[in-house]
Each structure stands twice: as C-alpha cells, then as structure tokens.
C-alpha cells in the first residue's frame, strides 16, 4: 500500500521536534533516566559497587558523606507509534481512517528524522513493530486493548487513541510510559463523541459491549461533556512531565498537525 498522498504532502511540510534539553547531537536523544552521558542528572549517596570515579568530592566534602554524580543515559533516537486497535476506534470508518493517517504521518516524520520508527497495535498481535507499513495496512480496529507492546527503552512514544478508559488513564500511562523517553497522546474523537447532539430516547450500545436506555436530552448531554472534560484533564495530569495531549478531531489531519505544532511535538519546515 502506498502512502496517503495528502499525508505525504503534509509530512513534507513538517518535522519532528527534538527537545533541546534532551538533545546531545544530531539524531541523538537523552534518555529520561540516569546513564553514562556527560549530561549531569543528579547526586545520590555512594553505595558499595559504585564506580569510585564518579565520586563528587566537593559534594562529599560539603555533605560529610560520600556522594556520587549521576549522568543521564544517552539513547539512540527512536519513535514508537502505539495505535489503538480496540473496537471503539472503529466507531465510524472515518475515525479509524483518521487514526491510521495520523500514525502514518508520525511514522513518516520519524523516518525522515532517522528515529527508527516502530508501530505497535494496542490490542493486536505482539511484534517488533517494524517494518511498520504492513502493520498499518492491516489496521482494522475490532478488539479490546488487551495486548501492550514490550517497551523499547528510551523511545519516544506516541499513543494514537480515543483515550476513553473507564478506569482512567493512570494505569495506561504507567504501563505505556515505562522506560519511554516521552509519551504523548493524540486523542482521536469524532464529532459525535466530542459534542453529542440531543437525540431523545435512545438505546446506547457500546461498541465494546454494554447497552443503556437513555433520554438523551440537554442535561444528559451536558453531563456527558462534563465527564469527557474530566477525562481529558485526567490525561493531561497523567502525562504531565512525560508528554503532551494533542486533540485530534476526526477530519483533516492538518488540524491535528497544528495542534501538535502548538504543543511542540512537530514543527514546520523552514521555521513557519
């Protein structure tokens, strides 16, 4: 399958942004944890087995106990796209297609940046995530997000999902962000999910199971919006310090790209 021309054109206008605080050189990233780079990370007390070369004598003199310096680990640049393959992503064909196009955009940009892109389908079969094109071609959201990919240490992860977790985002962030340099969420929601209309008496049928008979009137819709806002706030809170939440309404990928640019994940080529 060839790339979406519109996505290819959009990818040609964008580039991934490397956090200058984490950049060690062209194509290199600093990991979030301590390592062996020259970048200072923090101090800690000396324990048996530590390399005596890392002792910070001045700090030991000031504190009166042996203290070692720790440096940030240096990781090769890598970007993993975690594409939600649960049934909720197929609520509408447009939603699933939009999620796939966003994944393709990020993966193309990662290739362009030499960040060794990988694609993992949440709820799909486990695999190395590369090459990503065949995986993306097979993207057909229908299950529940049971499978989680093996984390690649130091990789920057982009989660493309609607983020509708009944038990809140914290467990997901904890598992998906483990060992990652960063974790971002592109929250894909269609118009009906973002701003449902009043429909009167309806039977709500969750595509992942469960029904509810409801009077879908103004108060019900307002309550829905309130809960959705709380959920999005929860995502922001859970990803605080780890990454960003980018709104990705179903439709034109350019809107999502602008949001990502605003969040500092992407940048226009040529400084636009």
């Amino acid at each position: 399958m060839t790339a979406d021309p519109e996505i290819r054109r959009l990818a040609a206008r964008l580039r991934l942004v490397h956090d200058p605080r984490r950049a060690t050189g062209a194509g290199a990233f600093l990991a979030r944890g301590p390592g062996a780079s020259l970048e200072f990370h923090d101090h800690r007390d000396y324990v048996a087995g530590d390399d005596p070369r890392h002792l910070d004598w001045s700090a030991s003199a000031r504190t009166g106990r042996p203290v070692v310096r720790r440096h940030r680990a240096e990781a090769s640049p890598r970007l993993e796209v975690l594409l939600d393959a649960s049934a909720s992503m197929a609520l509408t064909p447009a939603k699933a297609r939009h999620a796939a196009r966003l994944a393709e955009l990020w993966l193309l940009l990662a290739e362009e940046a030499g960040a060794r892109p990988a694609l993992h389908l949440l709820g799909g079969a486990p695999g190395p995530g590369r090459p990503w094109r065949p995986l993306l071609d097979r993207y057909a959201p229908a299950g529940v997000p049971g499978h989680l990919p093996a984390p690649a240490p130091g990789a920057e992860r982009v989660l493309i999902s609607d983020g509708l977790c009944p038990d809140g985002p914290a467990p997901w962030v904890r598992r998906l962000g483990e060992g990652a340099a960063a974790l971002h969420l592109l929250q894909v929601l269609d118009d009906q999910e973002r701003d449902p209309a009043e429909r009167g008496r309806v039977r709500l049928e969750d595509v992942e199971g469960g029904t509810m008979d409801l009077v879908m009137d103004g108060p019900a819709v307002a309550a829905y919006r309130l809960r959705l806002d709380r959920l999005r706030q929860a995502w922001h809170g859970a990803l605080h310090g780890r990454g960003h939440v980018v709104d990705a309404p179903v439709g034109d990928p350019l809107v999502t790209a602008r949001g990502a640019v605003a969040a500092g994940l992407l940048a226009w080529r040529g400084g636009r």
Partner: peptide, 9 residues
C-alpha cells in the same frame, strides 16, 4: 446509537 464511551453517560 453506537457509542464508544458508555461510561461517560
């Protein structure tokens, strides 16, 4: 009416 986040209702 198919929905993706029944818990929000």
């Amino acid at each position: 009416l198919p929905v993706s986040g029944l818990f929000l209702w």
